[in-house]
Each structure stands twice: as structure tokens, then as C-alpha cells.
Design a protein around this nucleic acid. Sequence first.
RNA 1: GGACCGGUAGCUCAGUUGGAUAGAGCAUCAGCCUUCUAAGCUGAGGGUCAUUGGUUCGAAUCCAAUCCGGUUCACCA
Length: 636
Amino acid sequence: MSIVSTIQQSVTESLSALFSQKFTEKDFQVSETKPEFEGDYTIVMFSLVKLLKLSPDSIGNRLGEKLVADHPDFITGFNIIKGFLNVSIADNYWISLLSKNHGDENYGRRSPNGQKVMVEYSSPNTNKPLHLGHLRNNFLGWSVAEIYKANGFEVIKSCIVNDRGIHICKSMLAWKKYANGATPESTGIKGDHFVGDYYVRFEDDLKAESQVLINKIKLADLSDFSGAELLKLEKLLVDLTKLDEIKDEEKINKLHGEIRELSRACTSVIAEAKQMLLDWEDGKPEVIELWKKMNSWVYAGFDVTYKKIGSDFDRIYYESDTYLLGKNIVHQGLEKGVFFKKDDGSTWIDLTAEGLDEKIVQRRDGTSVYITQDIGLALQKYEQYKIDQSIYVIGNEQIYHMKVLKLICEKLGMPNAGNIFHLSYGMVELTTGKMKSREGTVVDADELVDEMVATSKQLTEELGKVKDFNEDDLKGLYDTLGLGAMKFYLLRVDPKKTMVFNPAESIDFHGFTGPFVQYTYARIKSILRKIADAEPVPDQDIKINSPLFKLEKDVIINLEQYPAALEEACIEHNPSIIANYIFNLAKSFNSLYTEHSVANAESEEKKQLRIQLAGMTANVIKSSMALLGIRVPERM
RNA sequence: GGACCGGUAGCUCAGUUGGAUAGAGCAUCAGCCUUCUAAGCUGAGGGUCAUUGGUUCGAAUCCAAUCCGGUUCACCA
């Protein structure tokens, strides 16, 4: 039981005894005492004042005396300031917490609860390499999975690979046109980047061709358009002339954007891509063969990146397998009356009662739309794994989509549909604004990882502390530090917030960073190694005669909070709670480290105490950093 | 226009079941390495918590309105 709930319970009992009425822990608040006051925990009197119609001081005095009398081994003193009852906790309470848990590498973790949860994350497209945004997604997903495991859940990490569709055809087309049979092997380019380059090539062609069309439109030449597109275009142009008179810049821009989109859609290269997609769906052998070949290049590239950043999956779904899954669902939905058919034959769901719109679930030609596949996959996940919860790590631009998905699953009566959770995270922006692939400002994942590792190498060499390391050790250390810095940097921010990626800040290894925590760990291990070398210490209970120093107590208080932080991170689906927690723990230990020596403590008892303190801090740092996917070095 | 998310120090971020004088890192300035690793520690300056009103013993936190920024509302995925 945590110390706060222990205090709550004691206070509840004492209050009930004092005032002969029933109290619950909701009748008052317990929090840590602010550093400028004496005491460890504070009980706020004001809510009790209302209940008891007595002055804060009177309640505080009686409660404080009662608490000390009832729990002399736990609460040793109190003071009251302006309605705040500050109580002091016995040193022995902290010391026993330490002796009990200091050697437990699983401290804070919970035993299995029998619940199964699937975390879907990463979900890449097979037409380009991973970028900074994917890194945030991967680190978040992986970390949330670990946090769930630590809270007793059985976790299945999954990934849906978007390996089909018109965007995939784009890179295939460009490769056919320009590659002359080149391969990643023949060029020495990593497979995902190799394919991505052709995707860019296609986009360049598309841009050039649509620009020609736009130029023609400007000269009132609409000969390249026909049918529905022509009508739409003419309407847009009429609207545009009207707006030109009003001078509404926003609307004019919007219209220009629509014209741009329309001309893109009417290019010959898009027509080719569409044709290729049809051929793919028909199973045309040469298309399928090329598709398989190019995807295999991408997967080879992804494997390298995933391995490097430590992402892994228990189950990988491919959209090429799942994109037809929703078909049966439409039937069922119609039978259950959840869906309805419109006159043109398309199938819909009415979500207006939920404050949303009508959403289409099947086109009039009978083909599935995006959401239908997702429903199919959601059901398949449940059927295959009987999961209790399903977590989707997807960017916040899909909040609406995921809301619809969850609602539909609930209406279809899918088991545990209520436990679908969209872990939506904010975009990663640059100091110069958003990343835009068309402007080439996208930060490539592989490049970034390499830079971080190179930075850690450079800084390590400058400090020159590990000159005796062999080459493998060094390489391992650079990876540990570089990736640690990057993961910590991306995970320390609340997932749901848009965050700014500042390159200069990201390679800073001081302050609120991964390497700061890693350094604390390495120093502790160094101390413990030296002590153990000198004289192996037996594990023992500690009795000390001198009081705990504030700095010692601060560290123990931090350690006591680990289980609570772990639980909160799980409930909130939020690794940044862990990151903030570890940083505070490391900081408190560093302060202690500077002020009080472990090896040369003033007494043998204090030495034993600090050995346990250091050991437990190291354990908690190691296991909590592991929840973020960050390794800690024994030396650095 | 509707819906959702955000606005806290120069910058990046904590802090929301309402609590004491709003915190941390970076940056700036001033100190600390013959003593367990200075990737560290100690201290200083820096704030109308977007604005206005309300709720109450008490509001960054709850409510309302307004302003600013973002996302979204496709027979695209």
C-alpha cells in the first residue's frame, strides 16, 4: 500500500474515532508538504471545517495529536499552518521501505491480472522510409506496451502495414519508367529509401504535368478535361471570378487548391497509377510480381531501422490481406439494422444521434471503403486473440475516424468494443514549422538515428572517460546513449500534445535528457562496484541512530512513488509520466551524491543505508528506463 | 460553419479528482573538480498561467464568453 493511502486510512480512522462519525478518504486531501514547511505530508483541513463546523486549528490539533498517539511508529509529529496539517513520517518507516525493496528488480511491477490487450502501432506505408513522426509513434507504442505489461497485462504488439493502394503503385510506376532494372543491391541504397526515391520521382512528374495543365487553364484552355471533371472545373472557375471581386483571400486559396487537386487527378501519370491499381486487384502477374519485389526491398530496409530503434511486433497485419475483410460486416450490419442502404445501392450508418454525420461503409459499386477494412480488422483481432482492450497508436488527425470506428463496433455489438482506445498523439513539428514532404523538410528516421549516435560518440570522446573500452563496447555505448537521448526526448512530452523538435536541443545531453539519467545510473554502478570489490557486503536490516538527512529522505520518497507513477502511466496511456518520474528520481540522487559520500559515509550504518539507497535507485532507473525502451550503461 | 485539441518564464515542457509564495530543463549570470565519474552540484535573475467575467474560504486547474494556433468534418487511405 502506498504511503499516501496509508496516511489516508490512518486519518480516516482517527477522525472517525475523534468525532464519532464516519469519514472516507474523499473528505480530505493528502499531498506532499511543500519544501518550505516542516513535515513530509500535508492534510488539508478546509473540507473538514465544513463537515465539522469547527475551526481548522482545532481540528488540526486534535487530529494531529490523535495520529501521533495512534501511530507512534509512523507519524512522529505535526504542525498546523493556516489550515494545513503537516505531519512528519518516522525515519524507520522510510528505512524499512528501503530494506524491504532495495534488491527487488521487479519493484513496482504488478502480478498478472489475466487481461489481454493489443497495442497497434507504427503502421508504415511501403512507399517511403520512416520519418520523425513515425519515431514518435514507434516509441510511444512500444513504451505503452511495456507499461501495460508492467501493470500485469498480457500484451500483443501489432502493426498494420499499408502495402497496397494507389500510392504504392506510384513508386512502382516510376521504377518501371526510370530504374532500368536498378535494385537496392546494385545501387547500394537501403531498400526503403530506394523505393521512396521513386515515389518522389513520381511526385515530381505529377507536379510537372499538373503545372502544365494549370498553365493551360490560366489561358482558358480546358481541352485536357472532359466529362464530370470538366463540369467541376468550369464551376470552380466561375466561383473564382465571383470571389475575385469580393477579395476573400482564404476562399480564393481554397478554390485554387481545388483546381490544383483537380488537375493532379487528371494527369496521365495518375491515370496510369489508377490502371495499375486495377491490374493489381485483378492479380495481373507482372504487377503482382513487381509489387512483391519492391515491397520486399522496403521490408528489408524497415527491418534494419526497426532493429536499430528496438521496435518489434508480435503480429503483423498486411492491408493487402485485410482490405476485403469488411464485406461480411456490411451484411451483418444491414441485418441488424445498424446500417441502411441508399437508393443508389451504397451502404451507410447514421451517426447523427451521436453528434457525427452519416458515414458511408460500402460504395455503390460494392467495394469497401477505408473504415470498413478497419471494422473487419478490429473484429478479426478480437476473434484471433480474444483481447479485452485494443489500443491504436495513431496521429490525432484521425480522431474523428477512430471515433466513428469505435461507435460502429459498439453498434455492431462487437465484444469489448467499449475498450477500443485511440491513443492519439500530436504531430512533431520543426522550429521552422511543419514537416512537409513536398518541401523536403521531413526529418528522416535513419539519418536522425545516425546523427544522434554520432553525437554521442563525439561527446564521449571529448570527455575521454572510457578509453579502456574495446570497439564493440564503444559501439554499444554510443547506441545506448544516442538512442536513449532520442527516445527520451520524444517520450518526455505528453503524447497528445503537438511537440517541437529542436535539433540543437535534441542533441543536448544535459538536464532533462536520457543521458542525464543514464549518467546517474553509471555513477551508482561505479560506486557499488568499488565497494563490492573492496569488501562484499552482506544484505542486512539497517538500524540507524542518527536521523535521515533531507537529501536521503528525498530519494526514498521518490522511490516510494514509483509504483504509483507506473500505474498512472498505464491509466493515462502516457510514458511521459515515467520520463518525468525518472528525471526527478535521478535529480534527487545526484543532489545526495554531491553532498554525502556512500563509500566514505560518516558511520557504518549510514554506509549500509546509502548502499541500499543507491542500489534501489539503480534498479528503479534501470527498470523504468526499460519501459521507455532505453538501455542504461554500466559505465559511460 | 460544426466537432475536437492546444495557449503556463526568452525557448522546450511539467503542474487539471480546486489548496500554502505557479515548477523543471535549456539559454543568461555567479560559484563548486588534490575526496565514490563535473554528461554532475549549488545559487541568482526571468511569469498580468491568452483575455474577460463567474462559482468559493481558496482558481493555472471548474463554468461561460471572447481572442489566437492546430486538426478534422471525401463513394481518399
